[in-house]
């Protein structure tokens, strides 16, 4: 009996590994289509060089996460730059944006490997200061990305100006609802830099410029699609006369879209989203979502690695790199410059 069970366990493990490989293939083919053929060619060239014994620059990148499509796009950009400049990168991040401790472990481990530079998106810049000082003492350049680090150690910061981006969302919202009425927000959390910046950016812009717009509620859904859906439905129930809804990241925005669809209020409520992803792109195309702000995640990853290479080579690097943001809606979603920064 026991042997039989062991065999069963082994079979299960084997089966999951097989399935896993299948899944990876699928993922692999997806990235192939998004990346140009040139890059993949260079990629293999680079690997051959490494095999022949050339010492490549090693740049570990510590991100805020890896599961969300946004981080996968940042990673794609970083890999693109790594292929272009022929450097070796690793890309990792904690499971949730609350795991400051896990991120510190990752940063410590990265420092132990004597890297040539480090790309770092701090979850909590205070917590990271001692490690950053250590890196600075060892002469390892730090490139901050996505959100700033409150210290002068990083050589540069490659990030979106989230406050300005959310203010643009507020302007679009005001325009679309005729500068009066009730609006609400679903934000991913009230502690992270991006959460705070997007909320204050939107709220301040409304308060300063649109006296007839009332922000009736701001709730936090942890970027969880299902929780954000239920949150948005409760807000819609509490304020049946709501005119506009802003979802401050991908999960929040999808939650708002789901809620509006489930309640059959498509077209009645102006929904504005943030970032992209397949479902959000579909919502914009179908008109459920009026439009969304997109950052340039691929650009963030690319600029981070590029700045790292420049810093290692002693080149001048600007103190901050604005990777930019754009508004997209039904009318411009197929434009080349928009398509270049959207991810599915």
């Amino acid at each position: 009996m026991r042997k039989f069970l062991m065999v069963l366990m082994m079979l299960f493990l084997a089966a999951t590994v097989l399935v896993a490989c299948g899944g990876e293939e699928e993922a692999g083919s997806d990235t192939d289509t998004s990346g140009s053929e040139d890059t993949s060619g260079e990629d293999t060239g680079g690997e051959e060089e490494a095999a022949s014994g050339d010492e490549k620059l090693y740049i570990p990148i510590i991100s805020k996460g890896f599961q969300h499509q946004f981080w996968q796009a940042v990673k794609a950009g970083a890999e693109q730059a790594a292929a272009e400049f022929d450097v070796e990168i690793t890309f990792e991040g904690p499971e949730t944006e609350a795991q400051v401790d896990k991120q510190m472990e990752m940063l410590t481990a990265a420092l132990d490997k004597n890297p040539d530079a480090i790309g770092f998106a701090a979850l909590d810049s205070q917590a990271a200061t001692p490690l950053l000082q250590q890196a600075d003492g060892d002469g390892i350049p730090i490139i901050a990305f996505d959100s700033g680090v409150d210290s002068d150690i990083p050589v540069t910061t490659a990030a979106t100006d989230n406050k300005a981006a959310a203010a643009l969302a507020a302007d679009k919202m005001a325009e679309l609802i005729g500068e009066e009425g009730k609006v609400a927000l679903i934000v991913h959390d009230q502690t992270s830099r991006t959460g705070i910046d997007r909320e204050t950016g939107f709220v301040e812009q409304i308060e300063a410029n649109y006296p007839n717009i009332e922000i009736v509620d701001v709730q936090y859904g942890a970027g969880d699609h299902l929780k954000s859906t239920d949150l948005a439905k409760a807000i819609l129930a509490a304020h049946p006369d709501l005119k506009g809804f802003f979802g401050a990241n991908e999960g929040s925005a999808i939650g708002v879209v789901n809620a509006v669809k489930e309640l059959g209020k498509d077209g009645e409520i102006v929904v504005i989203g943030y970032d992209s992803g397949m479902q959000q792109i579909e919502a914009v195309r179908s008109g459920v979502m009026a439009g969304a702000i997109t950052q340039n995640p691929i650009g963030i990853g690319y600029e981070t690695v590029k700045a790292a290479v420049d810093a290692i080579n002693g080149k001048e690097v600007p103190a901050s790199i604005d990777t930019g943001f754009m508004w997209y809606d039904n009318t411009n979603i197929d434009d080349e410059d928009i398509q270049a920064v959207l991810y599915e």
Partner: peptide, 15 residues
Amino acid sequence: GLALVISGTKPIYFS
């Protein structure tokens, strides 16, 4: 872990 590995850390859509 398996959910992430099998999906390739990407959502799978039922479009």
